[in-house]
Design a protein around this nucleic acid. Structure first.
Length: 827
DNA sequence: CAAGGCGTTCTCACA
DNA sequence: GAACGCCTTG
C-alpha cells in the first residue's frame, strides 16, 4: 500500500506548531479574555475555551451553538494550538459548512485553507476517492441516489420473482439501508440469518445481488459512503493513521442525528496511533514528532460534539439518540456544557416549545429561556380546506410584508412535500414571491437525469445503470428486448455492458438498431477521450489539459441528439425540458469557472451530495417553503406551521413505529423554535388525499400548547360549529378527554364536511387555472372576484403575463392578484 | 419489436 | 394526482 499525500492540499501535511504537540491537560483552560470570547455568556465561553479529549455541548434551539463552534475553531487556530489543516468539522448540510467556513475566516481575518468543513458524506467521498484502489473501487465511482437504488432493486426483485413473496423495492431499500447504517454487510447478515425462513433466504439473495451489482458498476449508495469509509479504516489501519495523525480536532454538529455508522466513523477518527506505527510512519518520511507524546504514540484527536436530543428527527434513517445520551459513558472524562439561554425567539414562542416538548418523557429536562420578553401571541387558524388555510397564510404574509417584514424573513413549513400544491396555487394567484426549498429537485427531473447519465457513462464506463438509462434516450428504437440482448451478451462473454455495445455487430440485430448502438458507443468513446489530462497534467497529477465539464456536456448533448430531440418535439413540455437542460449547461459553466482544474467526477460528486437546504438563497427576496426536516438549523422572523392535523403531524406512518409519535413531537418542536418574532399555526378541516377529499382532525400536539399563548382567529372548535355556537377554547377539556378520535367529534367534522353547503366551501378557492388573456386593468377600475367580492384597483404593476393588480376589496381588504389567472371580472 | 394509450397503484421526512 | 405497468396498435 502506498501512503498518499494530498496533492492539492500541501498545507495539510505541514509540520504542526510545537504548541499542539503536548496534549493539553484535560480541563485546563486556554488563555481567556481573548477576542473570541467577548460577548459570550459564561456557558458559551466555557464551551469555547474548554480543552480536553471530549466535549459535549448540549445546545438548545437558538442558543448560539454555531457561534460557539466557530469561535472555538477560530480560537484553536489563532492561539496556534492547531493548524487549520488539523481541523475536521462535520456539519449537516453543505450550506452550513460553507457558512461556518466563512464565519471562521471572518473571525480570523484570513483564509483558513486546509480546514475540512463538510458533511459526513462529502468528507467520506473525499477520502474514498483518494483511497479507492485499496478497497477495489475505481476512483471515479458513481454515487447512487435513492431513485437509482430503487431502480436496481426493482430489477433484482423482478428477476428473482421476489414480488410474489411480498418484497417491494421500497421495502428492500429501507431494510438494506437500515442494515448498512448498522454496519452489517451481506456476510454478517448471512451469519445471523435463519436459513429455514424462505423470506430471509430471499432477502439475503436480494441483498447479495444488490451488493454485487453496485460493485460491478463501481457504484456506492449513500449509506455505503459512510460504511465503506469505516471498513477502509478498519481494514487498513495505516490508511486510518494518516487521517488520525492529520486531524487533531474533530467537531461534529447535529450530533443527535448521527447513526451507528457515523458514530463508528467518529470513533475511528479519534483513535490514538500506537507507538510502533508512529515509528513506522516516521520511517516513511512522515513528520510525527510534533504530534507524538512522550511514549512515542499519537493520542486520539480531541472531539467536540454539539447536539440537542429534543431536535433528533432522523430516527427513520437510523439516527440513534443514544449516541448523544450516552456520550459521557462512551468517552470517559468527557465534559458537558449546557446552553439553555435562547437568543432567537420571544418567550411566548419558547413557552409553547417547552410545553410541547415536555410531553416527551424519557428526556433530560431542559428549559429554554430568553431575556427579550414575551412578544406577540401565536396566531392560530383553522381553514375549511387546504386552500382556505393557504389563503390565510398568504393574507398574513401580505399583512406582515406591509408592516415592513421582508419576504425572505418569512418561511412556511409543512410535514410532507405534497402539501406544497395548495400553497403554491394560492401564492401564485396572490402574486406572492415564493420559493420551494428542496422538494422535487432540479436534478430529479427526467431530462436532467438523462443528461447526467451521459456524463456518468463517460466518467465511469462500468456504470451499467447510467448506460441503460441513455440507451434509448433520446429515442433511437432501442427497446427492452435489445437492452436484454446486450445484457445477456455481456454476461455470456464476460465483458462489460459498454463493451457489448461496442461489439453490437456480433449480436445479429437489425441494421438500424445495430447502427444506433455503435454510434452511441463511439460518441461515448470520443467524449471519454476529452476527459484525459495532457501529459503535463498527468506528470503534475492535475487535470490540466482535460476538456472542461461544460464542453464535455455540450458535446454529449449535441452528438447524442438529446437536445435536438427536445427542441424538435411537438410536446409543449419538451420546451421546458430543453430549457432545463440549458440550465444544466449553464451550471456546468459556473462550475468550470469556480473550479478551474476540476474534473467531470468532481462535478458529478457535487451534484450527488447537494442537500435540500443547500439551494436556499438568502438573497432571493422570496418567502421560503420547505418541509419541517429541511427547516432544521434555520431561523426566520416569521414562521408558519401548516397542516397541523392528525395523519400529517403526527404522520400516519409514524403510528406504527416505536417512538414515532415522540419523534413527530420533536419535529413540531423544531418547527416552533425556528421562529424569532411571529409564529402562526394552522390546519385545515378537510384535505385532499389520494385525489379524494378526506376529513382531517386537529393534531394532538395543538392542545399541548398552553391556552393563553394562542390567539385563534378561527379555532378548530369554532370551525366545527361554524356560524353556530360560541367559540370554544381549544384547550377546554371536555368530559371524556380532549378531542381526538372520538366518534362524536368525527360526526361533527363530517357534518361540516358534507352537510355544510359545498357550494360555499368546497370550492371557496377553485383549483382550476383560468386565463384572463389580455384583460387590461388600471387604477380606478372596479372588479369582482369569485372569492373576495367587489373591489377597486389601486395600482397595476409588472409586465406582460406577470401583471399584478393591487386591489382594495370592499369586505376582504387589500389583496394582490396575478391578473392573468385570478378569478376576476371587470365591472 | 417499439411506442403510445389507459387502468392501477400509492405516496413521510433526507444525504 | 402522477408515476408505473400492462395492453393495444403501428
Amino acid at each position: 500500500m502506498t501512503l498518499i499525500l494530498d496533492p492539492d492540499d500541501p498545507a495539510g501535511w505541514r509540520e504542526a506548531p510545537a504548541a499542539s504537540g503536548a496534549p493539553v491537560a484535560p480541563g485546563a483552560p486556554a488563555a481567556s479574555g481573548n477576542r473570541f470570547t467577548e460577548g459570550l455568556n459564561p456557558e458559551q465561553r466555557e464551551a469555547v475555551e474548554y480543552r480536553g479529549p471530549a466535549l459535549l455541548i448540549v445546545a438548545g434551539a437558538g442558543s448560539g451553538k454555531t457561534r460557539v463552534l466557530t469561535h472555538r475553531i477560530a480560537g484553536l487556530i489563532d492561539s496556534r494550538e492547531a493548524w487549520p489543516s488539523q481541523i475536521l468539522a462535520i456539519t449537516f448540510t453543505n450550506k452550513a459548512a460553507a457558512e461556518m467556513r466563512e464565519r471562521v475566516e471572518a473571525l480570523l481575518g484570513e483564509g483558513a485553507s486546509g480546514m475540512w468543513i463538510s458533511t459526513f458524506h462529502s468528507a467520506c467521498v473525499r477520502i474514498l476517492r483518494r483511497e479507492a484502489e485499496a478497497i477495489g473501487l475505481s476512483s471515479t465511482f458513481t454515487i447512487y441516489d435513492s431513485a437509482d437504488t430503487r431502480t436496481v432493486l426493482k430489477r433484482i426483485i423482478k428477476e428473482l420473482d421476489a414480488d410474489t413473496m411480498g418484497f417491494t423495492p421500497a421495502g428492500a431499500q429501507s431494510k438494506i439501508s437500515k442494515l448498512k447504517n448498522e454496519l452489517s454487510d451481506v456476510e454478517s447478515y448471512a451469519r445471523n440469518a435463519n436459513m429455514n425462513d424462505p423470506q430471509e433466504v430471499m432477502f439475503l439473495e436480494i441483498f447479495r445481488q444488490y451488493t454485487r451489482r453496485l460493485r460491478a458498476a463501481s457504484a456506492l449508495d449513500f449509506d455505503d459512503l459512510i460504511a465503506e469509509t469505516v471498513y477502509l479504516f478498519r481494514a487498513f489501519p495505516k490508511v486510518a493513521s494518516l487521517y488520525q495523525r492529520r486531524f487533531r480536532h474533530i467537531l461534529v454538529d447535529e450530533y443527535q442525528d448521527t447513526n451507528h455508522a457515523q458514530y463508528s466513523l467518529i470513533r475511528e477518527f479519534t483513535q490514538p496511533i500506537p507507538a510502533e506505527r508512529v515509528a513506522e510512519m516516521a520511517d516513511h518520511g512522515f513528520n510525527v514528532r510534533a504530534v507524538a507524546d512522550s511514549t512515542g504514540a499519537i493520542p486520539g484527536a480531541s472531539l467536540t460534539v454539539v447536539g440537542d436530543s429534543d431536535q433528533s428527527i432522523y430516527a427513520f434513517r437510523g439516527a440513534d439518540i443514544r449516541n448523544i445520551s450516552e456520550f459521557e459513558r462512551d468517552f470517559s472524562g468527557a465534559k458537558v456544557v449546557l446552553l439553555e439561554q435562547n437568543y432567537r425567539s420571544t418567550q411566548n414562542i419558547l413557552s409553547a416549545a417547552n410545553a410541547v416538548i415536555s410531553n416527551n418523557f424519557d428526556r433530560k429536562d431542559k428549559k429554554l429561556w430568553t431575556a427579550v420578553g414575551d412578544g406577540d401571541k401565536i396566531t392560530g387558524y383553522t381553514g375549511y380546506t387546504a386552500h382556505d388555510e393557504a389563503q390565510f397564510v398568504a393574507d398574513e404574509i401580505e399583512a406582515l410584508h406591509r408592516t415592513g417584514v421582508a419576504y425572505r424573513d418569512i418561511a412556511v413549513f409543512y410535514r410532507t412535500n405534497a402539501q406544497t400544491r395548495a400553497l403554491e396555487e394560492i401564492f401564485v394567484r396572490s402574486a406572492l414571491p415564493y420559493r420551494v426549498v428542496g422538494g422535487t429537485k432540479f436534478y430529479e427531473r427526467a431530462e436532467i437525469k438523462d443528461a447526467m447519465a451521459y456524463l456518468i457513462s463517460v466518467a465511469n464506463p462500468l456504470d451499467e445503470l447510467a448506460l441503460r438509462r441513455i440507451l434509448n434516450s433520446p429515442k433511437r428504437g432501442i427497446g427492452p428486448a435489445t437492452e436484454t440482448a446486450l445484457a445477456s451478451f455481456a454476461e455470456a462473454n464476460q465483458v462489460t455492458f459498454r463493451e457489448a455495445m461496442r461489439s453490437a455487430d456480433a449480436l445479429g440485430l437489425g441494421p438500424k438498431v445495430t447502427g444506433a448502438i455503435t454510434t452511441l458507443a463511439s460518441v461515448l468513446d470520443e467524449a471519454a477521450a476529452m476527459l484525459a489530462p495532457s501529459a503535463a497534467g498527468l506528470a503534475a497529477g492535475t487535470n490540466e489539459g482535460a476538456s472542461k465539464v461544460s464542453d464535455v456536456l455540450v458535446f454529449l448533448l449535441e452528438r447524442s441528439g438529446l437536445i435536438e430531440a427536445l427542441r424538435r418535439s411537438r410536446d409543449p413540455q419538451d420546451e421546458t425540458r430543453a430549457e432545463n437542460v440549458d440550465e444544466l449547461v449553464a451550471q456546468t459553466r459556473d462550475f468550470d469557472r469556480d473550479n478551474p482544474l476540476a474534473t467531470v467526477v468532481d462535478f458529478l460528486t457535487q451534484v450527488s451530495l447537494v442537500a435540500a437546504a443547500d439551494d436556499l438563497d438568502d438573497a432571493s427576496g422570496t418567502v421560503s417553503l420547505m418541509t419541517l426536516h429541511t427547516a432544521k438549523g434555520l431561523e426566520y422572523h416569521a414562521v408558519f406551521l401548516t397542516g397541523l392535523e392528525e395523519g400529517l403531524l403526527p404522520h400516519q406512518m409514524s403510528a406504527s413505529e416505536p417512538g414515532g409519535p415522540a419523534e413527530e413531537r420533536r419535529l413540531f418542536y423544531v418547527g416552533i423554535t425556528r421562529a424569532r418574532q411571529r409564529l402562526y399555526i394552522s390546519l385545515a378541516m378537510s384535505r385532499a388525499q389520494f385525489g379524494e377529499v378526506a376529513v382531517a382532525m386537529p393534531s394532538r400536539y395543538l392542545q399541548e400548547i398552553p391556552e393563553g399563548l394562542v390567539d385563534w382567529k378561527q379555532s378548530p372548535g369554532m370551525a366545527t360549529s361554524r356560524g353556530g355556537t360560541q367559540p370554544r377554547a381549544l384547550n377546554a377539556r371536555r368530559p371524556g378527554g380532549a378531542w381526538g378520535t372520538r366518534d362524536r367529534d368525527l360526526e361533527k367534522f363530517s357534518v361540516t364536511a358534507s352537510a355544510k353547503p359545498k357550494a360555499e366551501w368546497a370550492n371557496r378557492v377553485t383549483g382550476t387555472v383560468r386565463d384572463n388573456g389580455d384583460l387590461t386593468l388600471e387604477a380606478g377600475d372596479r372588479i369582482r372576484h369569485v372569492d373576495f367580492g367587489e373591489g377597486r384597483v389601486n395600482q397595476v404593476t409588472g409586465e406582460g403575463t406577470k401583471r399584478i393588480a393591487h386591489v382594495a376589496f370592499d369586505t376582504a381588504g387589500p389583496k394582490k392578484l396575478l391578473i392573468k389567472i385570478a378569478p376576476i371580472e371587470k365591472l
